[in-house]
């Protein structure tokens, strides 16, 4: 492979890595919105919380692998508690979207203060597990194993999610609820419980992303900011509630980021928003928008 080709291929894989990470965060956000009509402003905070859980579990057990399992589960449990004891109560007050927005914004603030109180404001480091350190050489291109691992992990989760959504009864219910949750409960399905489950799974996936990102970045209180913003762009552009939209747009944004930096670096930081503005002016519901309310 010539050095120039190698550079482009490397950029493409960088885009894929970030795109997949973004997908893990955005898919939960879009499912929660699509089904429950809730724009969860705290979603990226769960991503950050999980990175802190990861840091803590690694500090206790010295094992990234245990952290990869425990941290997202812990995050998902926090998500379930939030849904069951806070969100559901607020929704009963009938404040509409304002209630949800205020509550989730409040939760984001609480999480951000909590991590500062518990772990301090300094940056924490999580190391790549020894088995994933280093580079592999494929066709003359050197690439870090850990980034390939992130892509693989995300693919497994994408596969599991697609299986659940398109093959299982629960998936049928979730997809049906995206278009009409009242009718789903008229068919005898306990929607509050399904909501709780979806909220839990959504936060769990954000949690997986948080753990995966931890060794690439530092764990610090501002960790959620940028990926949170990008995830919102994905959901808006992909269409609220559309999982397919989340996959396609996440990967596209990842590549847009990589090749934007490669070719037009001065514009790279705003490309995402230009892209969003462009899409929304032609397709206000996003690429795969399904909700018609």
């Amino acid at each position: 492979m010539s050095p120039v080709t190698a550079m482009y291929v490397a950029q493409a894989i960088h885009g894929l890595t970030y795109g997949m990470l973004l997908f893990l965060v955005a898919s939960g956000l879009t499912l929660i919105f699509g089904m429950m009509g809730i724009l969860n402003l705290a979603h990226a905070s769960f991503f950050m919380l999980s990175a802190y859980f990861c840091y803590q579990v690694v500090a206790w057990t010295d094992s990234f692998w245990i952290a990869l399992i425990l941290a997202p589960i812990g995050t998902g449990l926090v998500g379930i508690i939030v849904e069951r004891f806070l969100l559901r109560k607020v929704q009963k007050l009938g404040l509409g979207h304002i209630g949800d927005l205020l509550l989730t914004l409040g939760i984001a603030l609480v999480i951000s203060e909590a991590v500062k109180t518990i772990w301090g404001t300094e940056s924490h480091q999580v190391l790549i597990p020894p088995s994933l350190q280093g580079l592999v050489t494929v066709a003359g291109l050197e690439y870090p194993i850990y980034r390939l691992f992130i892509i693989g992990l995300s693919l497994v989760i994408l596969g599991a999610l697609a299986f659940i959504l398109f093959k299982t009864r629960l998936g049928m219910i979730i997809r049906a609820a995206v278009s009409d949750r009242d009718m789903v409960s008229a068919l005898g399905i306990n929607m509050p419980r399904v909501f709780m489950f979806v909220f839990g799974v959504g936060t769990l996936m954000a949690g997986v992303a948080g753990v995966a990102a931890a060794p690439m970045l530092t764990v610090f209180p501002g960790l959620a900011d940028q990926i949170g913003l990008d995830a919102f762009v994905v959901v808006v552009v992909g269409g609220f509630g559309s999982l397919l939209g989340a996959v396609v747009v996440s990967l596209f944004l990842g590549e847009l980021n990589s090749f934007g930096i490669q070719f037009i670096p001065r514009l790279a930081p705003v490309l995402v928003f230009l892209f969003m503005a462009l899409v929304l002016s032609f397709k206000p519901m996003g690429f795969f928008g399904e909700r018609d309310e």
């Binding site: 190698a6 970030y18 940028q226 980021n257 990589s258 090749f259 930096i261 490669q262």
Partner: peptide, 20 residues
């Protein structure tokens, strides 16, 4: 020369360019 946003999440694209 490249300028990245504050608190950037992924430096890989910049680094690949710099290396090349």
């Amino acid at each position: 020369e490249d300028y990245h946003p504050l608190f950037a999440k992924d430096f890989a694209p910049y680094l690949t360019k710099a290396k090349a």
